[in-house]
């Protein structure tokens, strides 16, 4: 009996180790690369590099950022772009999903197109949006032929504009399918039965939407929009290509300072990166909070 008990104990101890063994390779990659990258960035942003003689950490990079005229407008612009893109994409995706569910035919077509869009790089989407929406793009040309405008400048300025409409359009185009696919998947996880039940219990279509469908979709919607919010906050290519000359969104500002010939601006670039990271980590925690609530419900 004691031997058996010991064996069992060993087995349990082994079982307790199993998940960690399975996770080990992943942790070996993620911890040094991701957490390590962030930690190294944090040290550098505080000018802390003992080996090359910088052994008194300071906030010089951060205070330089605050003195930089471009930083605050850049932060505001980035936040505005991320929030606007996320809200518009989420609402449209929600509408699209509700619409798709009422379709009889064409569901598979739209499913395919949503998935196709998911595979298209943002960069390509940006090129397409410029061709369509610039003041001399396809829509402006159509407007001219339809007699609405006489010259390009009469067409609303949508690309390279201070309001960043071009950037937001690209994000809406790319993220709407992402959110919609997540919502569709979440609906398929059993939500439709509840609706059927509600219907048989005599709920009106509006009541089903309000009290069954929307609450059912909400966690997935919030979680996916949090991912989109974090992405649009930190993406570089799109604002680099479609942004106005001033102010540059944070990731563009960070890259510019990072590649500045003046080495002194590198800590500033990394400080911006850290600010981006902290804000997106806040998104992670919000996300965790939201999904935990979902599990508890």
């Amino acid at each position: 009996m004691p031997r058996l008990g010991r064996l069992r104990a060993r087995k349990i101890r082994f079982q307790r180790l199993t998940p960690w063994l399975l996770l080990l390779p992943a942790l070996i990659v993620i911890v040094p690369l991701f957490a390590g990258g962030l930690a190294a960035g944090l040290l550098r942003s505080f000018n802390y590099m003992p080996v090359i003689g910088l052994d008194s950490p300071n906030l010089a990079a951060y205070s330089a950022l605050l003195r930089d005229d471009e930083f605050l407008p850049s932060l505001l612009l980035t936040t505005y772009i991320a929030l606007t893109s996320t809200v518009i994409a989420s609402l449209l995706a929600l509408g699209a999903v509700l619409m798709i569910r009422r379709l009889n035919a064409g569901r598979s077509l739209i499913n395919f197109l949503l998935q196709l869009n998911l595979t298209i790089p943002h960069l390509v989407g940006a090129v397409g949006i410029v061709y369509l929406f610039s003041q001399s793009g396809s829509f402006a040309r159509l407007a001219l032929h339809a007699g609405f405008i006489n010259e390009p400048q009469q067409f609303p300025a949508l690309i390279y504009d201070p309001a960043a409409i071009g950037i937001i359009l690209v994000y809406v185009w790319k993220e709407l399918p992402f959110i919609a696919l997540i919502l569709l998947a979440s609906l398929q996880q059993g939500g439709e039965e509840f609706e059927a039940v509600a219907r048989t219990l005599g709920a009106s279509r509006w009541q089903v939407l309000r009290f069954v469908t929307l609450p059912n979709l909400l966690p997935a919607l919030l979680a996916s929009s949090m991912i989109v919010l974090a992405f649009t906050f930190g993406a570089y290519e799109i604002p680099a290509l479609l942004g106005a000359y001033y102010p540059a969104p944070l990731p563009v500002l960070a890259y510019r300072k990072f590649t500045d010939v003046d080495l002194a601006s590198r800590p500033e670039a990394i400080a911006i990166s850290m600010i981006i990271a902290v804000l997106s980590l806040i998104f992670v925690l919000l996300y965790a909070h939201i999904t935990r609530r979902q599990i508890e419900n």
């Binding site: 992943a26 942790l27 993620i30 911890v31 690369l33 991701f34 957490a35 390590g36 990258g37 962030l38 930690a39 190294a40 960035g41 944090l42 040290l43 550098r44 949090m226 991912i227 974090a230 992405f231 906050f233 930190g234 993406a235 570089y236 990731p251 960070a254 890259y255 990072f258 670039a269 990394i270 990166s273 850290m274 981006i276 990271a277 997106s280 980590l281 998104f283 992670v284 996300y287 965790a288």
Partner: peptide, 21 residues
């Protein structure tokens, strides 16, 4: 959360620090 974090924290935030390493 650790696994999810790299999806949410933009690459540029990590790479500027990682670059030196």
């Amino acid at each position: 959360l650790l696994v999810l974090a790299p999806v949410l924290v933009p690459g540029i935030a990590v790479i500027t620090g990682l670059h030196g390493i």
